[in-house]
Write a protein that binds this DNA or RNA. Structure first.
Length: 511
RNA sequence: GAUCUCGUAGCUCAGUCGGUAGAGCACUUGACUUUUAAUCAAGGAGUCAUGGGUUCGAGUCCCAUCGAGAUCACCA
């Protein structure tokens, strides 16, 4: 243990010797918060110059001690609660025992045995100090929980310059409780994330969709192209996978007769980690019967506009991402893959055959190999040439059928499917399509995936006979979409790393 | 997975050419009854990520390992 930790344990022992429980059981009835008081405190100055304090004259407030300044037989403390910080003022005279002339609570508890980071409860009244700071004059001081480790002390001057910020990302992510205690600005990211999800939920509820939960432990991992986490059920003695997607289960519910369902939940993909990928991440998926992908575009525009307004301080439908101001009010640009490539590279991919696509990639130094088919080549060209330009929300539509095994064939364009991806700030945030509901076509697509798997494609989808059986009973025409919740949160909070929008990003174990 | 950068006190960092481990905040003791990055005086605090090597001598140079970040690749 460090010197400071030992001292805190000594303080703990001394508190007990004084008969003060450092971890008391009874509730502490909080009646005011730091923000309440600082925003609503009122006083008037009377004709004789004295002040008449109008409110917060008998309050109870609780929180963590974040700073202490001794001033002789008085003391100033900064108390931090969930709403913010407020100054406490304690005066020795207020704790004097008239008979003994001693003030043990002040001399021992407040002045000596109190450490930064301790949780305390205070009863007293609000007032303004000489320098005009709204503060709480302490009448009663109660230890609520002793802190045994020193917090990083982050200081700010009057201009807002920060000193000694707790800034090491490794320590911040590993000890998020410390991070959010001392770097309270990061709380806003998570508050916004929560409000974003709440707004989405409200929007989908208003649309009349039913919120559902589907299995996370799945015997067959389907619905996406990704490597899964594998686990084992002891009683059943069978392997199970953590879901990489919930799509096939949500469609079963459409078969079952629900007109519209949505689920917000965690997905798990056993792949690389970087600043936009965490092994577990949150997805929103929703499926609505009798709709198509054009309808989903309209709904997406409305939903994101509503989210943007809910998160913007002035209710505007915009968000600042780096240097870009993103406009979330629709309509968004709608661009086919061919048009996107043509626009940003000048290359006419629509009228090129596979050999021509391959030759173009070589010419432009786009990394390709002989195993890639037309669809993959198109995707490579798009990624290299067009993706980064799609800053304002853009629906990239009409993908090749090979890359979309669960998507309905395009109503008029052979070889393509009715699919779109939403790009914002050069990154994909949603993937949507008119769902394939032809069970025979679906079986053929699965069989094609099996052939890919035999060729060594690790991420090919597995055949799901129960899903096919469900489709054979009949699924209405349906539109479905999935959103990466974490990536949306990154955009709406202007963060470039997924770790900043996850409370506990995955880390390698500490030594 | 590849490359680069980083790891020194609780926190943020300095550490020159290889020659006894430094600062600010935090902490301890003392002073101060309206301070606020409080101030003033004194003091304590380190397995320099881990392991090896070179050297008379390594925080510093070399190798390996662990952890983190960035870029790229892979992946949606």
């Amino acid at each position: 243990m460090t010197e400071q930790e030992l001292l805190r344990r000594e303080s703990l022992q001394k508190l007990r010797e004084l008969g003060i429980d450092p971890y008391p059981a009874p509730l502490f009835d909080v009646t005011a918060t730091a923000a309440d008081i600082t925003h609503h405190y009122e006083e008037i100055v009377l004709e004789d110059g004295s002040k008449n304090r109008l409110n917060y004259q008998d309050i109870a407030i609780a929180g963590r001690i974040m700073a202490a300044r001794e001033a002789g037989k008085a003391m100033f403390l900064n108390l931090q609660d969930a709403s913010g910080r407020i100054q406490l003022y304690a005066r020795r005279d207020d704790f004097l025992n008239a008979e003994t002339g001693e003030a043990p609570i002040f001399d021992h508890l407040i002045k000596k045995l109190l450490d930064l980071g301790d949780y305390v409860g205070v009863r007293g009244y609000a007032f303004k100090t000489k320098t005009g700071e709204i503060s709480v004059h302490v009448r009663e001081f109660i230890m609520l929980s002793k802190s045994l480790r020193p917090l990083p002390v982050v200081k700010k001057d009057a201009e807002g310059n920060v000193f000694d910020a707790f800034s090491d990302p490794e320590l911040r992510y590993r000890m998020r409780y410390v991070d959010l205690t001392v770097n309270t600005q990061y709380r806003d990211i998570f508050i916004k994330r929560s409000r974003m999800i709440k707004t989405i939920r409200a929007y989908l509820d208003d649309l009349g969709l039913l919120e559902v939960e589907t299995p996370i432990l799945q015997p067959i991992h389907g619905g996406a192209a990704a490597r899964p986490f594998k686990t084992h059920h002891n009683t059943l003695d069978m392997p199970l996978f953590l879901r990489i997607a919930n799509e096939l289960y949500l469609k079963r519910l459409i078969v079952a007769g629900f007109d519209g369902v949505y689920e917000i939940g965690k997905m798990f993909r056993n792949e690389g980690m970087d600043r936009t990928h965490n092994p577990e991440f949150s997805m929103l998926e929703f499926y609505v019967a009798y709709k198509d992908y054009f309808w989903l575009m309209d709904v997406t525009e409305q939903m994101l506009e509503r989210v943007a307004r809910a998160l913007h301080a002035d209710g505007l439908a915009t968000a600042q991402i780096g240097d870009h101001t993103i406009q979330f009010a629709g309509p968004y640009r709608r661009l086919t893959i061919y048009d996107a490539i043509k626009e940003y590279s000048g290359f006419d991919a629509e009228n090129a055959d596979e050999a021509a696509l391959f030759a173009y990639c070589k010419q432009e130094h786009i990394e390709v190999d002989k195993t890639m088919g037309m669809a993959k080549l198109l995707d490579e060209i798009f990624s290299a040439k067009a993706e980064k330009h799609l800053i304002q929300p853009t629906f990239l539509m009409d993908h090749p059928v090979e890359m979309s095994p669960l998507t309905k064939k395009h109503r008029s364009k052979p070889g393509l499917v009715e699919r779109f991806e939403l790009y914002i700030n050069g990154k994909e945030v949603a993937n949507a399509y008119s769902e394939l509901n032809d069970p025979i076509d679906q079986r053929e697509r699965f069989e094609e995936q099996l052939r890919l798997a035999e060729r060594g494609e690790e991420e090919a989808m597995a055949m799901d006979e129960d899903f096919l059986r469900a489709l054979e009973y009949g699924m209405p025409p349906t539109a479905g979409i999935g959103f990466g919740i974490d990536r949306l949160a990154m955009m709406f909070t202007n963060q470039s790393s997924i770790q900043e929008v996850l409370f506990f990003p995955q880390m390698r174990p500490e030594v």
